[in-house]
Amino acid sequence: MSDPERLLEVRDLRVCFQTEGGVVKAVGGVSFDVDRGEVVAIVGESGSGKSVTAMTLMGLTRSANASFQGSARFEGTELIAAREDQLRRIRGARIAMIFQDPMSSLNPVQRVGEQIVEQIRVHDHAISKRAAGERAITLMARVGIPQARERARSYPHEFSGGMRQRAMIAMALSCSPSLLIADEPTTALDVTIQAQIISELKQLCEETGAAVILVSHDLGVVADIADRVLVMYGGRIVEQATLDELFYDPQHPYTWGLLGSIARLDRDRTQRLPAIAGMPPSLVNPPEGCHFRPRCPHAFERCTQVPGLDSRLAQGSGHLDRCWLSPEQKRKLRSVEGVIGLASDETVIA
C-alpha cells in the first residue's frame, strides 16, 4: 500500500451467487495487484470467473442474491465494501469499463454523442452541454471514428461493430480514468478489426497513462498488449506471470492447454486446433482440490488438496502457479507432448 505505483490491490476476493440451482461460487479467493499504467490480462474460459472478478471491482455484480468477501483497494478506497454513492464517484471517472458486445452495450435509442456527453456530465457538473458535446466529438475523432461530428448524431445501430466499440472506448476514456477494465472488448468483432482495436486501445492507454485490466478468453488477443497475465480457472487464479514467462515457460497444465488452442501460422495446417478435453467445472459443486484435476492428464493423488498460488520456480520470482507438479516434472511433461502447450494426447488428430 505504501507503494505509490500501486493502483489496485485485490486480496482474497470471493463472490457467490444464490441461484435456483444452488450457490454458485463464481470467484473463490482471488488476489492480484495492478500498477499504474500496467496492462494486466485475465485469461480463462467462460465460467472461470474472470468477468465476475472484473465487474465486481466496479460493483456491477451487486444484487440481492450476491455475496462478497475479501477486499479490493483502489487509490486508497476500499471497493468491495464501499457504499453505493462512493462507488458511483469512482465508476466512470476513475475506473471505466468497456464491454463485450458493443451493440447491446450502447443504449439503442440514444444518439452516440449524447451517450458520451452523459458520461462526461455525470462526473463534471460544471461543464456546459455544448462543451461536453465538443469534447465528445474530439474523443470520437481520437479513437479513430471518421467524421466524428456527423457520427455523434447517429444511433448505435447505424455504426459498424468496430465503430461501436470505438465509441465505447471514447466513452470510457472521456473522464481520464486511471484504470480501464475491458471485458472481452474484441470478442464480438471481426478478426480483422480485433487487432486494430486492441492496438489502438494500447496506444490510447499509453497516452493517457491508464492501467488496463483486459479480460479475455483468447491468449492471442492478450499477447499483443499485456504486461502480465493472470490465468483463471474455476474461480481461481491458476497461474500468474509476465507475458514472456507465460508463453515461454508456462507452469500450469491448464495454461498449456490454452496455449495449445491458439491458432498459429507455423503449425501444420492438416492438424486440427487442439481443444482441452472435458467440461469446465461446476461452480455449484466444484471438484475437490485442484479444480482442473478432472480434466488434467497429469493429475495424481496430491491434487485432491488445493495447491497454493506459489512461486515454484526461482526464489522470489513473480511467476506463480497452482500446480503440485515440480518445475522439472512440468518441463519433462511439456517436452513429451512435443509442442509447447499442446494439451493432451487425445486432442491431436491428423
Binding site: 466512470g92 471505466a96 443504449n107
Partner: peptide
C-alpha cells in the same frame, strides 16, 4: 447490457 453500461458510467 446498456443498463449495465449506464451504471458503469457512474450514474445514480
Amino acid at each position: 447490457d446498456y443498463v449495465r453500461t449506464a451504471r458503469a458510467k457512474g450514474l445514480s
